[in-house]
Design a protein around this nucleic acid. Structure first.
Lengths: 215, 215
DNA sequence: CTTACAATGGGGAGAACTCCTGATATGCGG
DNA sequence: CCGCATATCAGGAGTTCTCCCCATTGTAAG
């Protein structure tokens, strides 16, 4: 029995590459390709695939939203997220939306082929890079809320992070916030623990992604 | 006569997809794949390809820097940039670095195959989305513009800056570049003098603005 | 040939960061 | 009331960064 697959990615060369590789598998048939979330939604209703390979970041309607809507309508369709990012927000939100698998784009194709067969047997497949992210996400999900990585930080921690990312030293931050240098360092340490960063460069990039500061 | 091709991209599934498609072309042979700029540089010296398909954004040594260095050593090698971004800085800097073509990742594979054959005949190939960017870049280059990182910093300094902005310590950078920590610190000091920055956070932001690294 | 700059390497000093270990107080929810 | 998160503060150790000083080599421009 052949597995019917749809591909959703906003980059045509990526779609064609995936198709070229998938077509080497005898038991897999690629029904079509979509370049955004809205398009994959329509195609899914028409073509009823078994599996969708879904990019997370797409224009118009992103992969997370598309997944949520498709799973709500057609629970039988298995969706495998294929993403460049191992950002925990993407991973956790995608799984919460109902994805049956999450692969990074730097995985091997054979892993993807394997993932397709795994999700077909109603199991979840995660590439090993994201596995521990999910575990930690599960462990820290004592509350049913939306714990975006940003909300991981307390207001004070976000305040400190912003000043750090603006290039201020701990001493200056302490001065500005009227607290001791040691307190600033404690905040910084907690921030780095939570974000799993190890230095100012990574903290700065995180702050930029979260809009706490600009380039 | 077959065209010998190397692939440089930090995502394995992208590399495999490109390889799968390229191998369908009778006159093209894929010699190998690299996952960062440093690796493609070494492989180019060993394998002497005709064409390199080069991702612009790669860790460690980005595609622009790698292109600059490869073109300097081996002017005969044709490099086609393959990027997600139509950001003018990427396009213009890549071409300035000596790339013979610039394609967006949402182009069709047949365009890429065509680009390979065009650059083999010593011509430049641009996917149409970036063509007008280049024209406008040319027009605005008649007036003296603000000094970007590429004129202000030396190649080695840009290399060090990228690694700093990726969160690496001086010791690790020294190790990676096979130079002493003191040399790295000298480079860093010169970079900070030139850019008038005082810390890693500001350096990181500068590197992001200039496209040396991404968030 | 001189001048300038890039790239390499080094010594030393103080500041800043990173990573531990603690502690106290407050407020909120079960 | 208890547990938990937040916010505050501290000591110490080790690493890293920042900023001075300096040098040699090679190369490109004038």
């Amino acid at each position: 029995m052949t597995i019917k697959v749809l591909i959703a990615d906003d980059h045509q060369i990526m779609r064609e590459g995936l198709r070229a590789m998938l077509e080497k598998e005898h038991d897999i048939k690629v029904l079509g390709e979509a370049e955004d979330g809205r398009m994959i939604q329509r195609m899914t209703q028409e073509l009823l695939p078994d599996v969708i390979i879904m990019d997370v970041a797409m224009p118009d309607l992103n992969g997370i939203e598309a997944t949520r809507q498709i799973v709500a309508e057609l629970p039988g369709v298995k969706i495998i997220a294929l993403s460049m990012h191992d950002d925990r927000r993407f991973v956790l939100n995608m799984l919460k939306a109902g994805a049956a698998g999450y692969m990074l784009k730097d995985c091997a194709f054979k892993d993807l082929a394997k993932a397709i067969r795994v999700v077909m047997s109603h199991k979840t497949y995660l590439s090993h890079e994201v596995a521990d992210i999910v575990v930690q996400g599960y462990l820290s999900s004592t509350d049913p809320k939306d714990p975006s990585a940003f909300q991981l930080l307390s207001p004070r921690e976000r305040e400190v992070l912003q000043l750090l990312a603006e290039g201020q030293t701990s001493a200056k931050i302490a001065d500005k916030l009227h607290i001791s240098v040691k307190t600033v360092e404690t905040h910084r340490q907690k921030i780095m623990d939570k974000l799993k960063t190890r230095n100012i460069a990574e903290l700065t990039k995180y702050a930029i992604r979260e809009g706490l500061t600009s380039t």
